[in-house]
Design a protein around this nucleic acid. Structure first.
Lengths: 133, 133
DNA sequence: CTGCATCCTGGGCGATACTG
DNA sequence: CAGTATCGCCCAGGATGCAG
């Protein structure tokens, strides 16, 4: 029974530019996945105010900032309607929709495993409590 | 064709403590998932030096720091063997193994979608290039 | 309503050097 | 080899205020 492969046979290490790492970096922003997820969830175009209301804790600044980044990466499109008051809609691009898949995977996994997540939370709580003594 | 539900009928927003967000926070550390993944990949116990060598860019400090956090969350166990030179092994706990699943999902998804990840990279590159002008 | 500019703070993360 | 301590940077990200 091989519990551990010898050094020489172990698979090559991740390099910085490997796919998993690039994905991680893409999702590293605090609000990135939540914004993509919400855009997807609401279907069609979403207005900034709606996004803001649907993502508690998100500030206007971080929203627009994140949306700009996603625009530049061509994961999100912005549609402006020049009227008063201004009407703006954001929607996922075709490329953007691709990345919905891993996000939904993560989110639903989380939802299905609340129990384990609570165990982790409990552990961290126990820790901070003992730290107070 | 309903492209967008009226405000009142839209599903309640994520609150801060919902499962998806907790999962995101758990994985928010730059090295967290990579360390868990590598521990899993190597099977059985892993020695710090091995981890370090298998995760390019990881510094000794960030490794131990992340491992300590994971220990506190009870996702990782540390086994010390008091000899010279010191022998230490880290291994996933039962709870830790649970979280391997979403990590592997993410990583393999990334691997299967290198093409799209490259498109994103291309978009960001095009951006920084035009910014130079 | 939407969006930008500004200012500021915390802490994540890295580099380095030192112990056993 | 494994781990710690220190220093300091940088920037993500929050608060506020102004403009169209």
């Amino acid at each position: 029974m091989v519990t551990q492969l010898p050094e020489e046979y172990r698979q090559a290490p991740f390099d910085e530019t490997c796919a998993p790492r690039r994905l991680l970096r893409l999702f590293s922003g605090k609000w990135t996945t939540m914004i993509l997820h919400t855009l997807h969830l609401m279907g069609g175009g979403s207005r900034p105010g709606q996004l803001l209301r649907n993502i508690p804790g998100l500030s206007k600044k971080m929203m627009t900032q994140t949306l700009r980044e996603l625009e530049q990466l061509e994961l999100v499109e912005r549609e402006v309607r020049q009227v008063m008051p201004p009407k703006v809609e954001y929607r996922l691009t075709k490329l953007g929709e691709v990345f919905i898949e891993p996000i939904e995977m993560l989110y639903t996994w989380g939802t299905l495993h609340e129990a384990e997540l609570s165990q982790v939370a409990a552990a961290s709580k126990a820790l901070s409590r003992s730290a107070l003594s």
